[in-house]
């Protein structure tokens, strides 16, 4: 990818990649859900993310002004050009892990999009207004499952706790600000992620208490997604996501 320095492009691309990659991950549950209704629920959540990705990547393409559209951005960039945070790309794992990751993400996205509705960039504010309404439903869904499984049987409690432990070290990246994002926040376009930490923690604490789950220790953390340094899992995800456009470049239907 040619170096692009347009800050709105970088910001919309990063948020768009978050949505695209998690939408693809959740969509993997389609036809693999624990039962029909949950299968449908996860497919609906995935669709919300894909919809966000389309709006954000289209906007990124406009901001860049090089003629790239949402499809070109989604289907023709390689791993190192993806800007999503690592938590969004982790494999879906078992249902417990999927819900632990979803709770961490939803509890972050509700206050994040709430703040982004006040962005001085009206397009981003408009996208945030839609995403906020959806994320509130996602949070109801994920917190409901974390509580049911955590306070359920010994087996479900153990697996829910495992999922939470495995995702925990990826959560600090949600609150990291690089220089470009900080400059955008300064000018009223971006959200200051660091400020959302307290609200996120109090949502998590409330859910974990009801779920009788322990809050993992903050003794490890991994980051790098915004710099394009990803886990080994992203390449496998992209090989499926991008297969058609890689095999038949420019294909339309």
């Amino acid at each position: 990818m040619a170096a692009s320095t347009h800050p709105i492009f970088e910001y919309a691309l990063a948020l768009g990649d978050d949505a695209l990659v998690l939408g693809q991950r959740i969509a993997e549950w389609c036809s693999n859900g624990p039962y029909l209704e949950e299968d449908i629920a996860l497919s609906n959540v995935a669709l919300d993310y894909i919809g966000r990705a389309r709006m954000l990547l289209s906007y990124a393409g406009e901001a860049e002004g090089q003629g790239r559209n949402e499809d070109q951005l989604a289907f023709t960039r390689d791993c190192r050009d993806f800007r999503n945070l690592l938590i969004y790309e982790l494999p879906r794992g078992d249902f417990g892990f999927t819900m632990a990751r979803q709770l961490a993400v939803d509890a972050f996205e509700v206050p994040f999009f709430e703040a982004l509705t006040r962005s001085s960039d009206r397009t981003l504010a408009g996208i945030a207004g839609k995403a906020l309404k959806e994320s509130r439903y996602h949070l109801r869904h994920s917190s409901g499952w974390v509580i049911r499984l955590g306070a359920g049987t010994d087996e479900s409690h153990r697996r829910m706790q495992d999922g939470l432990d495995q995702v925990w070290g990826y959560t600090p990246e949600l609150f990291q600000m690089d220089a470009a994002e900080a400059a955008l926040a300064e000018s009223g376009v971006a959200v200051d992620r660091a400020e959302l930490r307290q609200q996120w923690e109090s949502t998590l604490d409330e859910v974990l208490k009801q779920a009788t789950l322990g809050r993992p220790a903050d003794d490890w953390q991994i980051d790098g997604g915004r710099r394009g340094v990803h886990t080994e899992h992203l390449g496998h995800l992209l090989s499926e996501l991008q297969f058609m456009q890689r095999a038949y470049p420019g294909l339309e239907w």
Partner: peptide, 13 residues
């Protein structure tokens, strides 16, 4: 409520 999400995004079961 059977599920928070129904046959389309706008509905619950």
């Amino acid at each position: 409520k059977v599920s928070e999400f129904g046959s389309t995004a706008c509905k619950a079961l």
